[in-house]
């Protein structure tokens, strides 16, 4: 069914006929608009984060700050809960990604062994979880009973296995010739040796994909912090703190007056400008990393999207 992409050697030369030129022009305009719509809001936030808070209230800041300041950023890093949030976010991203990767890889290894006796059943057991889940309240009660609420581990343990990520790895592992496993077994290697020494080194690209998926998920999630760890400030996350900042800004209303009052009390920063700075801090790690990881998530999406 699937044709393999052939090298693009022959580029067809198009005659510059009238409809073709129209098409190219319209397409270019569309793409330029697309880029502007995508980038402008982000760049605008960046500009506001470097702009004096009170000054920003006058409006009219687009891409370049009017009066430069770093105060918004220093305010962000002076806020204790934001610092705690950063530490927790980094910790959950690192630990969560590593444990999830190990669990998904091991499970995928088991269900991709052709000789494994319960291969079909174990696969089905996990695929079902993609479609059926208990829902918010039973899950909430379960975590409460397991003692996972008000604890750091609620970020790590429940989400360790994801059927989708497991299927991505499984599909990749199934492409590895079985003879490798057989010949290793002839040499006396056990399954765990085969997993760690033979299969895993071959799976580095797909491991990178899955690690990226779960790292992004961990870094960006806020709902679990709000639902399970609302009462314990020591387990707050950066995203949740950002959410609190957002709701404080919007609930203070659109009235610029109240913001100006807040601004004069807090110096040259306003809730809006601090939020802009916190937003930039939150998005920075991912924005810096993702362009270099493109080929990994593109392969991951194409493997995972079509299968099951």
């Amino acid at each position: 069914m699937k044709k393999v992409k052939e090298p693009e050697t022959k580029q067809i030369k198009y005659k510059a006929s009238a409809p073709n030129t129209v098409f190219v022009t319209l397409n270019t305009i569309f793409m330029i608009l697309f880029v502007i719509v995508t980038l402008y809001p982000v760049l605008n936030t960046l500009a506001i984060s470097f702009n004096d808070g009170t000054d920003a209230l006058r409006g009219g800041i687009h891409l370049i700050p009017r009066s430069w300041t770093l105060k918004n950023y220093t305010t962000v890093f002076q806020k204790n809960n934001l610092v705690t949030g950063t530490v927790v976010s980094v910790a959950r991203t690192v630990i969560g990604t590593l444990t999830a990767l190990a669990a998904n890889a091991l499970l995928a290894f088991i269900v991709s062994r052709k000789r494994f006796l319960f291969r079909k059943q174990l696969s089905l057991f996990w695929v079902i979880t993609m479609y059926v889940n208990g829902g918010l309240i039973p899950v909430f009660l379960l975590y409460k009973n397991l003692g996972l609420t008000n604890s750091f581990w609620v970020y790590i343990v429940p989400g360790m296995v994801s059927a989708f990520n497991m299927l991505v790895i499984r599909t990749y592992m199934e492409g590895i010739p079985e003879s490798l496993e057989e010949s290793a077994q002839l040499d006396g290697a056990g399954y765990m040796t085969i997993f760690t020494k033979i299969i895993s080194p071959l799976c580095k690209p797909v491991y990178a994909t899955v690690a990226l998926f779960s790292a992004v998920g961990q870094w960006n999630s806020w709902f679990d912090a709000m639902l399970y760890n609302r009462m314990s400030d020591e387990y707050t996350t950066l995203q949740y703190e950002l959410m609190k900042l957002l709701s404080s800004v919007t609930s203070q209303g659109a009235s610029a007056e109240s913001m100006k009052n807040a601004a004069s009390a807090a110096g040259a920063v306003t809730p809006a400008s601090v939020r802009a700075a916190a937003t930039i801090v939150t998005m920075l790690p991912i924005v810096c990393l993702y362009p270099f990881l493109q080929r990994y998530f593109v392969t991951g999406m194409t493997i995972g999207g079509v299968k099951e």
């Binding site: 880029v35 995508t38 809001p41 870094w219 999630s221 950002l242 993702y290 362009p291």
Partner: peptide, 23 residues
């Protein structure tokens, strides 16, 4: 264009809604 087009996917909904509020 492709690289730029992926950017918003990596931002959390918190950030996206915050940006929307501004815009």
């Amino acid at each position: 264009i492709q690289t730029i087009s992926y950017l918003p996917h990596f931002l959390s909904w918190i950030i996206v809604t915050g940006i929307l509020h501004d815009v």
